[in-house]
Design a protein around this nucleic acid. Sequence first.
DNA 1: ACAAGTACGCACCTTTTGGTAACTATGAAA
DNA 2: TTTCATAGTTACCAAAAGGTGCGTACTTGT
Lengths: 115, 115
Amino acid sequence: MKTSADVYVAACPSRVALELIASKWTLLILPALAEKKRMRNNELMRRIGGVSQKMLTQTLRDLERAGLVLRIDHKTVPPWVEYGLTPLGRSLSRTLTSLDRWVEKHQAELNGGAR
Amino acid sequence: MKTSADVYVAACPSRVALELIASKWTLLILPALAEKKRMRNNELMRRIGGVSQKMLTQTLRDLERAGLVLRIDHKTVPPWVEYGLTPLGRSLSRTLTSLDRWVEKHQAELNGGAR
DNA sequence: ACAAGTACGCACCTTTTGGTAACTATGAAA
DNA sequence: TTTCATAGTTACCAAAAGGTGCGTACTTGT
């Protein structure tokens, strides 16, 4: 079903981009990748913590499609795949990192999200 | 069902905060509120566009509970309710606004989120 | 012969998100 | 007396997000 909101969003490309970026995983993955030039799947999992293999892969693919993340597959067995940021991704990661840092710094002042 | 990810998140308060902030609506509402000291429900709806009454109210309540948004109910009929930012909200909105601006500026370089 | 290691893809299922529509309150105006 | 306005709330429903478990490929070490 197509709602009026869909029509609006379709007419406004930045909304599509915003939804990609406004994801918990994107907000964690990009800053994580910014810490090192290249990182493997395993390492990303450990750094981020709490992310499932499925979501990590899925988000990385979305980011790759968007042109923010680079995927380097060495085509070996066992698999050796590295991820890095494109220049665009590096640019965005600067803003996201500052957002992450804000959250870390002010989390104590925020009342817990308990409903 | 409680998964291992839940346990992790519970142990890490900044994750809870991040999930509140990593919402499409939060990313739009806070910067919108930053443009004016006080704003009414109707005006927010128009400024943001594409948000339903339900989601707007719900997100505003979450943000209020977190201490980012101020809700001033004049208790009149018809209702007159205004929203504004707390100092903490104003502080966060600066980072979010810069994120919004990044998206606007670079949306053309981003490949559409089409799957 | 067999297990380990890596980065997945897929199927199945539950939970969360979010939309729509209908309902609420109440004083003022027509 | 009926209508309007505003800012909700609620119930119901569809869609999307996201978890778990299983299968896969192939090489190297035991």
